[in-house]
Simulated assay, not measured.
Amino acid sequence: MSNSGLPFDDIRALMAHLPPLDAEAAAAIRARDAQLTKPPGSLGRLEDIAAWLGAVQAKAIPTASRPLVAVFAANHGVAARGVSPYPASVTAAMVSNFAAGGAAINQICGHLGLGLKVFELALEIPTADITVEPALDEAACAATIAFGMEAIHGTDLLCLGEMGIANTTVAAAVYAALFGGEVRHWVGRGTGVDDAGYARKVAAVEDALALNRDHLGDPLEVLRRLGGREIAAMVGAILAARIERVPVILDGYVVCAAAAVLHALDPDALDHCVAGHRSAEGAHGDVLERLGKKPLLDLGMRLGEGSGAALAAGIVRSALACHTGMATFSQAGVEDRG
């Protein structure tokens, strides 16, 4: 691999010029919040969410009128190692189910008024088996990141989701490479593997780490060697959202693997993101602590599809509705006793 002109250089250059959150917009929102017809602080985290939205969007009056759940679907060569009780063909079947409106995420989006887009990432061509060779070459990984960057235009609140048989295995490998520690700490049961399947899953992650041990000091190398197309695309989506000042709601274990790559590159890279929920999968709670994210929900979910992020979007939009719709004390003719 050449040492100059690498596709990843463009990613690093973008990372060096991320727009900061707007403190003035956040201050204006908090000033208005102090005048609303409620005791100070009585809406708890909803007040913080409203200020965060304004800071990300650089608007004293933020919006969330075009919310989008973006689900990225991909297949993984490591699935052939028996790390999931389901065959890789289930990924395409679930994409068809999304299109037919039959999945959980369809119901949540319909009920909450959220847009939904599903992006298929070459399902017929799984990434390479990470126990044998890197998942992607650098050019393909960078191109997939770029695809994710182009996928999120037209929204003012982005919820990220994913679908891919065996993607909890590659996510665990990414976490183990980035954070270290015992592999078993990062490997969960995914879609419900039995004990033998769990042992194969742990072994697969261990083998992948051993194969790539000399190349895991760079988070982008971790991504391309151990990750998958959906994780790479979500890296791009998160990055583009920051550049375009779009707030992001992260879903569960696999989505946060993409976030963890960016966090490893720059701890401030996720300031425009909130954690929608704490998944019951693997060590997601540990991941969120390392990312500095307190989840909005903790419902014992581990479905993926963006389901937890979509539910959390209802909370985020409610926080904004309270902030923009409530009367001030002067408007309501109510005496403000602080």
Score class of each variant (00 low, 15 high):
residue 3 N to H: 13
residue 3 N to Y: 08
residue 6 L to N: 12
residue 9 D to E: 10
residue 10 D to E: 14
residue 17 H to N: 14
residue 17 H to K: 15
residue 20 P to E: 14
residue 27 A to H: 11
residue 30 R to Q: 14
residue 31 A to H: 11
residue 32 R to K: 15
residue 37 T to P: 06
residue 41 G to T: 06
residue 55 A to K: 00
residue 60 A to L: 06
residue 63 T to C: 05
residue 70 A to E: 00
residue 75 N to I: 06
residue 86 Y to R: 10
residue 97 N to D: 07
residue 100 A to Q: 12
residue 110 G to P: 03
residue 110 G to L: 07
residue 113 G to A: 13
residue 114 L to T: 00
residue 114 L to A: 01
residue 124 E to A: 14
residue 137 D to I: 05
residue 140 A to P: 03
residue 141 C to L: 10
residue 142 A to W: 00
residue 144 T to I: 08
residue 144 T to D: 03
residue 149 M to I: 05
residue 151 A to E: 04
residue 156 D to Y: 06
residue 159 C to F: 04
residue 162 E to W: 06
residue 163 M to C: 09
residue 175 Y to Q: 02
residue 176 A to N: 00
residue 187 V to P: 07
residue 187 V to F: 09
residue 189 R to N: 12
residue 191 T to I: 10
residue 199 A to F: 03
residue 210 A to K: 10
residue 212 N to F: 08
residue 217 G to E: 12
residue 217 G to L: 04
residue 224 R to P: 03
residue 224 R to I: 10
residue 243 I to D: 06
residue 249 I to K: 02
residue 250 L to V: 02
residue 268 D to Q: 15
residue 272 H to S: 05
residue 295 P to S: 06
residue 303 L to K: 06
residue 308 G to T: 04
residue 310 A to N: 02
residue 310 A to Q: 02
residue 322 C to F: 09
residue 324 T to W: 04
residue 329 F to R: 11
residue 329 F to Q: 05
residue 333 G to F: 15
residue 334 V to I: 15
